[in-house]
Nucleic acid binder design. Structure first.
Lengths: 189, 189, 189, 189
DNA sequence: GATGAATGAGGTTTCATTCAT
DNA sequence: GATGAATGAAACCTCATTCAT
């Protein structure tokens, strides 16, 4: 009986993972507003199953990107330790952030969206990434490399917005614009 | 008869203006994807009236912003003539552009949207504003004030994206981020 | 003043004729259910004008075909006088009727329709054409050429139905089918 | 689980049947162009349910009549085997076809309609019934009972048209007209 | 836990018809 | 008489979401 419960739990976990994978794929293809049916179909489960695991769309979006958000946050201190200067670390970190956002079709837009259905995701990203960004930014400011009047939150929103790509404004464009923005943040010597 | 026709035409024009005003207000509150019903209701007309004046949503969105888009484009040569340096003109122009975009909630997003219903608006903005921006940018490059590897289109998309505001990222933030971006575009002397 | 009234009346008559012509053309192209706007546009008048002259669609449809309906009815006695046998006259009359119906796209369908908006037209056709057809049919029966158990109304409905054409069942098909039907009505000798 | 799935599937099947019955009834009353809402309401389901089972109107119309169309087609060889002469079989088959068409108000009209929403149904009827009719017709021609210049398709269209009934032209009239048409198709000996 | 059928609100669009000028 | 802008009912179709099994 205890075992059967464990087996069932394991099944549920696998179902959950399957939904997450399907959602990730569908989000890339159609954006985070894709029909739930589409995701359920791709995961080969019923729509009810999606709703059981993720009651709101934001829960699903958040869960889909949580791993990567966490990984992105954890990257900050590692880069700070590994790079010669804080600003190098900041540049590389934003580079990683851009790559993350751009490859998730619609995530940049979701970040900046006021859609109440996405505020949950918004909160997660802010809570997780802003401190990471703030750590890098603070180090840069302390080192006199970056102006002190830029907040981590504002910078992240700006970077997030710059990552809203399209046919005529692609990942490379986004990277260059973010680089220019960071360059503009340098203290003018 | 000629007079009555003129009166009627005048009435129609006022209705049209009313729809435009209502649409502008609704767009600010809900974005450019707001339901047509909402706009019709706010304008105190039937939905059919909205469709009569603006057969597609893009027609409406375009009409709402056309005046300002044109005004913005016309500002470019005037600033170029009035300012001491091209880069000053560029800064002031982007400042005006940001003010325009930010006060029209959702227009920045519309500029970058791939939504087929907005491609018309997209085309108008690109056709009108990119040349204006290119003129300023070219002058800056010729004066050696700005790096030559930034295209007017990409810059406009970036500025447009930076103007997607929200409760925690407002017009002042957008202006500062755009300024930093432009600063980053300067030739490092 | 009397003259100006006459002039005005003449104007109105011409407007009316213009609407009729436009309606006839539109009916051929799109069927009798075509949008009123289409007809008004083609006639280069306002929709209100169409409604003033023809309050209901049936009024318009009826008016459009009235001339031809009358001409068709008047043909019956002339054919009866001119042809050697009544059945020849009947054949030639139905031939003319078929040509009339088939070239008026949708009229055959309108004849058989129960659409309350068309009952007026239905009544006109019945009142005008059934007596004409009955005259021919009666002569045929009297001459022993056609069975006595076919009513003029039923025959007309049948012919009307057979004239509902389409891409794979055209005017020639309709004519042949009507001919076969008439052949079937002959008294078997 | 397997059982509950079976129960659910059974429920769905009943819903589907309910929709079909409702659609059949509404089609009789209002023709095959009746609003989907009407059908949904009569079936006591939501419109979404109708769309789930029958994505397009043609799917619904086709499903409503499919059984009877098939039964009609299958009747042809059986009659051919059972009757003394091919022409008797043809007469009885068209009689059955007429009964089928007339009791399904609007189906005759649908058969001849150019409405793109009905082309599917049109195709089904043509594909299923024309071969059946052709078999009978061919046998009649081979037996020298019917003229060779009538195609199965044209005959079916003609019969379909003759089955467009109304208050003053009912099923009995349709049957008699079809009989006369067939009589007219006989080789004159 | 999983299912997916059913629901129905919500969006779009079309046109017949009215009415003030 | 003529006009055509305005109206709004009505049809379509799509999903997010619920719930009985």
């Amino acid at each position: 009986m205890a075992e059967s419960a464990g087996v069932r739990r394991e099944q549920a976990r696998r179902t959950r993972e399957g939904v997450l994978e399907a959602a990730a794929a569908v989000f890339v293809a159609q954006g985070v507003q894709a029909p739930v049916r589409e995701i359920a179909h791709r995961a080969e489960v019923g729509v009810g199953t999606v709703y059981r695991h993720f009651p709101t769309r934001a829960d699903l979006v958040t869960a889909v990107y949580r791993h990567q958000i966490d990984a992105c946050a954890e990257l900050a201190p590692r880069l700070l330790a590994a790079c010669d200067t804080p600003s190098t670390a900041l540049h590389r970190w934003t580079g990683a952030f851009v790559d993350f956002l751009v490859t998730k079709h619609g995530l940049g837009a979701a970040l900046g969206s006021e859609d109440p259905g996405l505020e949950n995701l918004h909160a997660v990203m802010v809570d997780t990434l802003v401190p990471a960004c703030a750590e890098l930014l603070g180090a840069c400011v302390d080192a006199g490399e970056v102006r002190a009047d830029v907040t981590a939150y504002t910078l992240m929103r700006a970077v997030g917005n710059l990552c809203i790509t399209g046919p005529d404004y692609d990942q490379a464009d986004a990277r260059r614009m973010v680089d220019l923005l960071l360059t503009g943040c340098r203290t003018t010597s």
